[in-house]
Nucleic acid binder design. Structure first.
Lengths: 111, 111
DNA sequence: TCTGCATTCAACCAAACAGTTGAATGTTGG
DNA sequence: CCAACATTCAACTGTTTGGTTGAATGCAGA
């Protein structure tokens, strides 16, 4: 069974698995941008960028606001929180590993 | 250009975008498991599970250790750290949003 | 109203993905 | 050695992904 929460998380991680999309998120975190502004730096067609935005939207990572014939795209950080919370569980594992490495080094120093 | 770091991050997020794989990670975080033990609860062939493990391995999320004819699979949390660090940048955005929501509510309370 | 700009839709394509089945490759206990 | 077990490989399938092109839609200014 796939719970709704799992499906949401699937979508978030999937959306984040493309570096173009991560780069878009980074740029709109500074200020909201139009689709054309977003497309600017990439060597991609508008349609391709439009699809990336749809992926981000379906993962609830962005919001859209209509401003005349433009569309203002902005960051919606809520969905990232769920990804972050999923990862938070594993903090203990990498800090634990770091600790045991540290104590290993300390043991070496004591003759 | 795709830097090596970006490709690594792509792979980590991609590996995490499947709930079966996330479930595998969660289970091996308790203790290392054999491939068969991992496969047990899922309604999947061994080959399918083997493929999931390969995806996790290529994302450097797991380690394998040979023990006779068994293979012990364990968590390698290092790669998650990079995903976590990527997300850490966005903490400010969801906490900021939370703060502004809070102050909005507080303003309402003041007549 | 016509033109031009911003954006999306539809159809298509190649590559990647998630799964299957069945055969192949270790490894080990008797 | 060989039978049984653990795991992977190869080949195949249907679906998704990331991209393209060209047409369609929607809005705004002259």
């Amino acid at each position: 069974m796939q719970t709704a929460a799992e499906i949401r998380l699937d979508r978030v991680f999937q959306a984040l698995s493309d570096s173009t999309r991560r780069s878009i998120l980074r740029r709109i975190s500074r200020r909201e941008l139009t689709v054309s502004e977003i497309a600017g730096p990439y060597d991609l067609t508008f349609a391709a960028v439009s699809k990336h935005l749809k992926v981000l939207e379906q993962a609830s990572l962005i919001d859209r606001r209509k401003d005349g014939s433009f569309q203002m795209i902005s960051l919606n950080p809520e969905a990232m929180k769920s990804a972050d919370q999923w990862l938070r569980f594993y903090h203990q594992f990498w800090t634990a590993r770091l600790e045991s490495l540290k104590s290993l080094l300390e043991d070496k120093e004591k003759p």
